[in-house]
């Protein structure tokens, strides 16, 4: 008989992030398919009361909490100690959590500590013959594997956006506080802050409908034998402002910066999509001035509808990687697109 524990950390305001509710959604589905399985929720953070109320209607047999100022911040030693204590206290055999930066950092270590195993970037779960199976991607989204494990506790960290979120009315709930004794060594690290660009300059928008990818072509010599980097920059900025799209980039374009060439000033490696970049989730993606080579397009695995604008009719996008390829000058097209968008 499995005991399913959903682990989540609370946000600074005490709430639960939507990704935590997705982990709970996955756990509920799992529980429904496993007769006798018990569901529990483990919360960690400075305060856990509000978060507990938010999941009151989830049907969890127990809601456990680790709270206090030490658990407010994202830090390996304290996050791992909290997750370990919650897992032990629940007697959990299956632990589900959302793949936030915080959980991805600590849970594999907790699995090692408890003699269990961890699978990260899980995109689906299923049950057959009373056994749990998970699917995840290998070789940078090139192939999908389905597996099951004998070891317990089994930590299953689900990719944000891959599971339907649980929803239910808030209500009163009794939280069982789990005590964690920390040694001084758990406080050797202090979080000093978050570095981010100003809100209107932030081009990475995980919740955007559209991913807009800029490729190295924007910085290459055009039909007139000249480069037009300042214009490219204006066109892309205007497009992002008008659509609120998230900005992705090819590796070639971000690497130019390191080589001292003129590049788009608002791009960094964080924007890079692909083999050595990100694999974001968006319903639509528009690629511009990018060749659509395999190391780039593996990062498009979770992009729904895909369109591309490239001068090259034989680029990768033409070969089954995009739904539509416009063989055209992206400068001219984007100029017009921005004009139409601005008109409303």
């Amino acid at each position: 008989m499995e005991t399913i524990l959903v682990l989540a950390h609370t946000e600074l305001d005490g709430s639960l992030a939507p990704t935590a509710l997705e982990a709970l959604g996955a756990a509920k589905t799992l529980q429904a398919a496993l007769p006798d399985a018990k569901l529990m929720i483990g919360l960690a953070g400075e305060r856990v009361g509000d978060a507990a109320k938010a999941v009151a209607a989830s049907g969890a047999a127990r809601v456990l909490g680790v709270s206090g100022p030490d658990f407010a911040v994202s830090r390996y030693a304290t996050d791992a100690a909290a997750a370990e204590a919650l897992t032990r206290s629940a007697g959990a055999t299956l632990v589900l959590a959302a793949g936030t930066a915080r959980m991805l950092r600590c849970l594999p270590g907790v699995a090692a500590r408890l003699g269990g195993r961890a699978d990260t970037h899980v995109t689906s779960l299923s049950v057959a013959d009373g056994k749990v199976f998970v699917s995840r991607w290998y070789y940078r989204q090139r192939m999908e594997g389905t597996l099951t494990r004998a070891q317990r506790p089994w930590f299953i960290v689900v990719d944000p956006g891959s599971q339907p979120a649980w929803s239910g009315a808030p209500g009163p709930v009794a939280v069982e506080e789990v005590a964690v004794t920390l040694t001084d060594s758990a406080r050797r690290t202090t979080v000093t802050g978050v570095r981010q660009v100003a809100a209107d300059a932030q081009t990475i928008r995980p919740d955007a409908e559209l991913l807009f990818v800029a490729g190295a072509g924007w910085t290459k010599k055009q039909a007139d034998g000249q480069t037009h980097v300042p214009e490219a920059e204006t066109l892309i900025r205007d497009f992002l402002r008008l659509t609120r799209a998230s900005l992705g980039s090819s590796k070639s374009l971000v690497d130019l910066g390191g080589e001292g060439q003129a590049v788009l000033s608002f791009l960094s490696h964080l924007n890079q999509i692909g083999q050595t970049g990100a694999t974001p989730r968006h319903p639509k993606g528009l690629s511009t001035c990018c060749h659509g080579e395999e190391p780039h397009t593996v990062g498009w695995r979770f992009i729904g509808e895909r369109r591309a604008i490239s001068l090259d009719p034989n680029c990768g996008w033409a070969r089954g990687k995009a739904d539509v390829l416009y063989v055209a000058d992206a400068f001219a097209v984007l100029r017009k697109v921005n004009e139409l968008l601005a008109r409303g």
Binding site: M143, A150, A322
Partner: peptide, 22 residues
């Protein structure tokens, strides 16, 4: 140990690309 893969598949990734030229 304790790990069993039941399947590994390469997804059908080819889309019917509509190429808009000229």
């Amino acid at each position: 140990e304790g790990l069993t893969f039941t399947a590994v598949n390469v997804p059908k990734q080819l889309r019917q690309t509509r190429i808009v030229k000229d």
